[in-house]
Structures are given as structure tokens and as C-alpha cells.
Write a protein that binds this DNA or RNA. Structure first.
Lengths: 403, 403
DNA sequence: GATTTAATGTATATTTATTTACATAACTAC
DNA sequence: GTAGTTATGTAAATAAATATACATTAAATC
């Protein structure tokens, strides 16, 4: 049976999957690098690359690399080839955005969030808001590549559900992916906010670091792990839960989780606020704590530094266990200047063996407020362009353009 | 230029790399599975597989899988296709072996080891011993696939060197791989013994577990991490170093490393022996401790159980950080019955959140004494048959058979 | 033992990728 | 500007992989 020209073209798009994956992952950003990385002949690479360039998925950037002769043209995914819908569910608000593949924010909005509403009603409101964003970007960025949700609670990524017992009553085990999947013809992702911030720091600021830790010190304390260049989630998606590691001491404070002496009950934003209130200072949230530090209140500074030491104690355990080359500290408390960081550094360098701390960097995160949102976008990009799934992506892309 | 038949045959062997890698890694053990996993056509798979069968690298095992129709023949790497030289350097002895690709021990020997001798002299003695083993197996197992060394100290796997400061004075930073590489035309591997025991437990007993921890409780305390199905080494190869995590307490004992209150100084074999000696019992090594436990000495049982609790304390940190689905406990102290294990279980279940412990198994290791040795063999096999390196292996194999 | 079922082998035509060889392009250094 | 250098494109011949269709094999089931 003779195939039509149209079918042939689509078939070639599907063939270009390996090339696309290499470009998207950053493993190869030039024709020469593609040649080496793919192992294919130059003719084949050229041909397939041309298909991708023609389809508008890949572009030659303005950047070139000096080479001694004709400079190498740098290739990259074309940002405007598609868009994603992402939402960051916070404690009180939901921040939503439509983003291109750069990933850059194309349109965004914020709505209120209340736990009391329950998952179905909340997802319905998110969908309504997404509809508005969709209308703004669909014309210019035709292809919908995915939906990604950031949750302020542990998530089993594989199953796409909140795993509990969680602070989000009613969300435990609710099948978010299926609910959203009924409305969108694109892959759906749900992930914990700390893991997404970790992905953001890794992909955006330290793409060449293979083993790193991100610590979020806010109201609670959590962390994310990059192991071998990839986010590490553990068996149930609960990896990085350092907030409820306990330290013994005579004055071990009671934690929200019901145990005594957890890191969070000693160094979390709520714990510091509790201690400040005891000293007669007005503080309820992590933000209040930072405000008092910025006002140079000595009690607040002392407590923030002590929180750093507590976090440093658990960070030193993490360093001994994982031997990362970088620790990035973010979250609201990290905005209180270097007091937190110096406390962490002090304990890590004191307690870890020189072998592990020799090349270890400890630094503050990007103070960007939407790092979870951008991390959620990176999560989508990493997945749809991964070696195992590009083909599926290209089939959807080709199907869309066949219509 | 017309190629000779011989050259053509070698070229086909080289092409079969993908197939070989899939079979060796256990990802596909039948023709049907190879079809699905490789994405190639049945004709191509058949053809390449026949090349591997003909070369004697792969064999049809006697095992079949029922299928409803004609049963599926199970394929596997042919054990006798080659051999490896492995050595496990212990505190006082070196255990050496020649192994086939099963991996089974074909021939073995043991020689004394003294730190005082230094690396060059020791490696020379290992080489001499290897020469003897080589003579025994070369005739029947012609192809030498690799050399692998187990070291009782931290190792930077990538660089193939002991990293210190280590108990092996003089070995720090000695280039073991280069030294051995001068004598063998095969890849050389050097790895820490705890990581190799971890690889053994994973590949041999729990190949389908993705995230697990192996804890070695012997004279010292160490651990190995399997993350996402692969050994995790960290930035300097120092990951899993739980022996020198510190706990605060008024009576924190002095550790060999110079710090106070390390896990090892509380629960290591030497620490228990120290405490037993204080109580007037004869004990110097972990073996002595276990002997006393076997003699039902209540002091020894109490201290072993308490050591389990201490190890459990650090294990609970590891569980919170990594969320594994399995913890395997090995080393000399694990032979003292369930006293150690129950102490560990007690603390882990007490201190970790239910989410992390819900599906967590904690069990004793295989009491095999040569698990590091067999792990060292698995390390070689996993590497030479890995997707990135099979080609290299097949080229060496073809070159050998061209002669 | 005949029948069913799925695994496996193989020849041929077709499609696809690679090699080879030559041509062109775009920069640096002089 | 010219020479040197490397990047990149392309046509034609060659080599390799695939689809297709048919044949064979070894078990389970009746």
C-alpha cells in the first residue's frame, strides 16, 4: 500500500525521537554533539534534525560556539513549540500559569485555596482557571504538552496521589491524575513542592551537579535529593523527609506530628515563632520571624542562628549518608540573611569527615517565589522528552498537526 | 574494498551489543522479551542472537516459561564464556578467586595481608597469586573479562583509588587501577567492601528491589545504598558512611576518628568489646562479642541489643532521608541472632513516620562470608555489559578470537 | 493422539541508514 | 583580503534493518 506524503512526513517526525531527546535533555546542543551522542551518521542526523526544525520543535539559537573554524550553531528546543499548564498549590493560595517550553511564564493568575473545599471542588476551580489561561495562549502556542501540579504535602509521584497522613485532610489518596486526565489530552504530573524546588535549583542553576540536596526551611522543614543527576523519590515518594528526624535532649519540644524533638519542632518557622512569642515578641509565621530578623531583633537573630545549627545537625547526617557536592538552602527562613546558613555550615563542617566536606558547597537558594512552579514545568519537560517517552510525545504532536 | 568473511563475522558480533546488554542485565531473558525491549524486528533479533549463541557468549538455559503454546526458551549469559579475577582485601587476609560469569568461584586462595607492606608490594603479591589462578582457569575459560578489588576502606570508584584519611596508611591516593592495568588487558575495578556486599545482596537476593540499604555491623559500622536500582556512591564515593554520625549524650564515648559519640564508638564491634572488657569479660573483636552472645552471656546480649538500638537510631535517619523499601543487616554482629535486628526494628518503627515504614522490610543478610567477593564479580559484570560499554567488551572479545 | 496455541525460523521485497566523496559555509589568524 | 580550519549539506552507491508471508516447532488441552 502506497503511503501518502503526509503519512511519510509524520513517520519521519516519529523517527527523530532520539535526536529530540538528546537536545531537550541538554546532552547535545549542536550537530557535532548529536553526531557523537547518537552514534548515527551525519546524513541521518541532518535529515532528522531538518524534520524537527521544519516542524518547529527545535531551533537554531543565536548562540554559536567558537571552534577554530566555522562556529558551531547551538540548537535548542523552540520555546514557542508548545505550552504547559502548571499550578502551585500553597497553604492559602494557588498560583497558576501557562508556560512555554523555555520554560517561561506566558500568563498567570492566583486564586484562593482552602483545605475545607476538598479535592474535587478545588480541582474544578483549577480547571476553570486553566481554561482562562488556555484561551490566552492557545492561539500562539498551539500544542499542549502537559499539566503539572505542585502540592504542599508528600506525594506518591508514580501513582499521582497525595500520600498521608497529610495536612491536606480529604486529599489523601484522591486520584488527582485521573480527575484531571478526563479533561486534558496531555500527560498529568503531580509532585511535592519541595521536590519541584529541588528540580528547579538543579535544572536551572546547577545542571551539571550530579549529587545535591535542597533544604526548604519555611514553616516546616523538608528536603529534596538529586542523586546521579535525577530527583530521588524513594519507595513511596517520601524521601528527603528530614523535618521529622528526632534529636534527643532533655528539653525536646513537642512536634505537630506528635513526636518529641523533631527538627521541625526545633527549627521550623512555627517553632521559632512559638519561641519568640514566649519571649514576648509578635510572631506567628516564618514570614514574621524573618521580619523580626530584618528589624535586627537580637532574640530573632539568635533563634534563627540556632535553627541553622539544628538544621545543620540533620544536614550533617544527610552529608554523611549521601555525600553530595552541594547543599542549597531555600524557603522563607533562608531569606533572613546568612544567619541560618552560617549555623548550618558550622555544624556540617564540625560533624562530617573531611572527605565528605572537602568539595562541599553550601549556599542560599535563588529567592524566586515561583521556583516550585518553574520546577513543575521542568518536570514535564524532562519527562516528555525522556528517552522512553519522546516517541509518544512526537506521535501526539504529529496527530495534532495532521488535523 | 571487499571485506573478508572473518571481518564480517566480527562486525556482526559488535552489532549484537544491545541484545547482549539486555540479556546480561536481566531486562530480557527470552526472544520475545528481547523483541519488546529492543524494539527491533524479530528477524534482526534472531540474527544477532544467533551470532551471540554461535560465539558462545549466550546460551539457551534448560529453563522454559510456560506460555500456553510452545514454551519460551530462557536465555542467559553463558557462565563459561569468560572469567574474572577478584580479590577481597580484609583486615588480616586477602581472599582471591577466579570466577566465571555466573558468577561462580572456579579457583580460590587466601594469603596474609599486612598494612605495613604498602600498596605496591601488596599488589605485586596479589598479581603473583592471580597468576596461579589464571593458570588454572585459562585453558577452560579463555576470555579474561576483568579484575575487581574489594577494599576495607573508602574508595573513589571513578578514580580507582583509596580516599583517606584511611586506616590503610600508605594506600591513600595510590593509583591501584594504573598499577594493575599495566599487567592485564582487561578493565580494572576497585570498590569499597560495604558497597560490594550491598551489590551482592541486591543482585543476588533482591534484584527487583529499587531502593534499599545494606548495613554492615562488624568491627566498624558502614552502609551501602541502592537508589533506583543502582549503587549510589555520592560525590567522592563516601556515601553510606553512617558509622561516624554523632549522637549527643552526656556519656558520649570517644571514637577512633577523634570525635565524640559516633555510632561506631557506641555500637561497633570494637566498642562492644571495650564495654564487655570493662565488665570483666574477655573480648577484643566483633567475633568475640558474637561468641559471648552465643554462650548466652547476659551482658553481651544486653550490649548487642543496645547496639541494635543505636544502629536503629541512625537507620531511622536513613529511612527518613531515603525512604527505602528494604534494609538488610549484615556483618559479624548480625550473626549474633536476632538481638541486633530487634533493636534496629524497635527504633526504626518508633521514630519514623508510618508512611515510610508501612512497606519497609528489615532483615538479616545472607551469612555468606564471601559476599564482597561475589559482589566484586557482579560489579564487573554489570559494568562490562552496561549499555555504554558492551561494544567495547565485544570488540575485545572479537579481537581475542581473531588471533 | 489430534488439536490448539504461541514460539521461533527464514526467504524475499522493501524501506531505511550509512559510507563515501565532493561541495559549500562561516569563522579565526595572519 | 587570503589561508587555514572546522561546520555543515548533499548525491549516489552500499549496507543493513524491517515488514510480510509462510513454515516449523514444542508444549498444553481435549
Amino acid at each position: 500500500m502506497a503511503k501518502s506524503v503526509g503519512e511519510k512526513e509524520q513517520a519521519s517526525v516519529a523517527n527523530a525521537s532520539g535526536i529530540l531527546s538528546l537536545i531537550a535533555s541538554g546532552s547535545a546542543n549542536s550537530r557535532a554533539a548529536l553526531l557523537a551522542a547518537s552514534g548515527m551518521s551525519r546524513v541521518t542526523v541532518t535529515q532528522r534534525l531538518n524534520v524537527l526544525l521544519g516542524a518547529g520543535l527545535v531551533e537554531e539559537t543565536l548562540r554559536t560556539l567558537p571552534s577554530g573554524g566555522r562556529p558551531t550553531r547551538v540548537l535548542g528546543i523552540k520555546g514557542s513549540a508548545g505550552f504547559m499548564l502548571v499550578a502551585d498549590i500553597g497553604e492559602t493560595h494557588i498560583h497558576l500559569a501557562a508556560m512555554n517550553l523555555a520554560p517561561d511564564i506566558l500568563a498567570q493568575s492566583t486564586i484562593a485555596f482552602s483545605i475545607a473545599e476538598g479535592p474535587a471542588a478545588t480541582l474544578q476551580r483549577i480547571k476553570n482557571e486553566f481554561d482562562g489561561l488556555l484561551a490566552q495562549v492557545r492561539a500562539s502556542h498551539g500544542f499542549h504538552v502537559g499539566v503539572s501540579l505542585s502540592m504542599p504535602t508528600p506525594v506518591d509521584f508514580k501513582r499521582g496521589r497525595v500520600v498521608g497522613p497529610s495536612v491536606l485532610y480529604g486529599w489523601d489518596d484522591f486520584d488527582i491524575v485521573s480527575w484531571l486526565g478526563r479533561h486534558y489530552d496531555a500527560p498529568i504530573y503531580v509532585e511535592n513542592d519541595v521536590n519541584l524546588m529541588t528540580i528547579y535549583e538543579h535544572r536551572h542553576n546547577f545542571p551539571h551537579v550530579d549529587d545535591m540536596i535542597f533544604i526548604k526551611a519555611g514553616t516546616g522543614i523538608g528536603s529534596g535529593i538529586i542523586a546521579g543527576g535525577k530527583i530521588f523519590r524513594g519507595a513511596q515518594g517520601a524521601a528527603g523527609d528530614i523535618g521529622h528526624i528526632q534529636f534527643n535532649s532533655p528539653d525536646a519540644p513537642l512536634c505537630r506530628c506528635g513526636k518529641l524533638g523533631c527538627v521541625e519542632a526545633r527549627a521550623g518557622g512555627w517553632a521559632i515563632a512559638r519561641d519568640l512569642a514566649e519571649k514576648g515578641l509578635q510572631a506567628e509565621t516564618a514570614r514574621d520571624v524573618v521580619a523580626l530578623v530584618e528589624m535586627q531583633k537580637p532574640e530573632a537573630i539568635m533563634l534563627l542562628r540556632r535553627a541553622g545549627q539544628t538544621i545543620g545537625e540533620v544536614a550533617s547526617d544527610v552529608v554523611s549518608i549521601l555525600n553530595p557536592s552541594l547543599i542549597v538552602v531555600g524557603g522563607m527562613l533562608a531569606r533572613g540573611g546568612d544567619f541560618l546558613l552560617s549555623g548550618i555550615r558550622e555544624l556540617v563542617y564540625q560533624r562530617c569527615l573531611p572527605l565528605a566536606t572537602g568539595d562541599l558547597q553550601i549556599m542560599l537558594a535563588d529567592p524566586k517565589t515561583d521556583s516550585a512552579l518553574i520546577g513543575a514545568a521542568h518536570l514535564v519537560l524532562d519527562d516528555i522528552f525522556s528517552a522512553g517517552k519522546v516517541k509518544e510525545f512526537l506521535e501526539r504532536f504529529a496527530a495534532k498537526h495532521r488535523r
